[in-house]
Amino acid sequence: MCNLYNITTSQEAIRQCTRALRDHLRQPEPSIDIYPNQPGPVVRNAADGQREVANLLWGIPTPLERVKGKADYGTTNIRNPQYGHWQQYVGVEHRCVVLLGAQPNTRR
């Protein structure tokens, strides 16, 4: 299923793999079902430029005409990046990495 992922690693492995300088995670519990409307480890650049890892809900705000007054859990699959609504989110400042069972690279 698209957008379903698992946490199968430790907090330390996440820090090593991402080289995050700040860690706002609580120890992630192993989980076999993490969906976009549930918090999961995400790596992002903070406003001061430092890489950090935090438990976040992830996705891009859904166009208002699609939300129709319901809760907006964000859109995670964008099939038409040229659609005007998405243009405000394509910059580097809106990028992040959603971790999918991160493992440190032990080969040198």
Rank of each mutant, 00 (worst) to 15 (best):
Q38Y: 14
K70P: 01
P61S: 08
L25C: 11
V67I: 14
N80W: 01
Q87T: 02
E65Y: 10
H94L: 00
A20N: 09
A47P: 09
N77W: 11
P61Q: 04
Y89T: 02
L100I: 03
S10H: 10
R95C: 12
Q16F: 04
N77A: 06
G91I: 01
I78T: 06
S31V: 05
V43L: 14
D23T: 01
L100C: 12
P81S: 08
T106V: 13
V92H: 15
D48E: 13
K70H: 13
D33A: 05
Q16S: 08
I32K: 06
S31G: 13
Q88K: 15
L100P: 00
V53E: 02
Q50T: 15
N105L: 14
V67D: 01
G69N: 03
I78A: 07
P28M: 07
E12G: 04
N55R: 08
G91N: 11
N37Q: 14
P30N: 06
P63A: 06
V42D: 06
Q50V: 15
L4H: 12
R108K: 07
Q82N: 13
T18I: 01
R26S: 12
N80E: 06
E52L: 09
L57I: 13
D72G: 00
Y35M: 05
I34H: 03
W58F: 14
N6S: 12
A20L: 03
T106R: 14
V92G: 04
Y83S: 11
I60E: 02
G59H: 05
T75P: 01
Q16C: 06
E93F: 01
R95A: 12
C2P: 10
G40I: 00
G91E: 12
Q87C: 01
R19V: 09
L99N: 01
N105Y: 14
Q82K: 14
G74Q: 07
A13W: 06
P36T: 02
V90P: 00
Y83A: 14
W58E: 03
C17D: 02
R95Y: 13
Q27S: 15
P30K: 10
L56I: 02
V53P: 05
R15T: 11
C17K: 08
T18H: 09
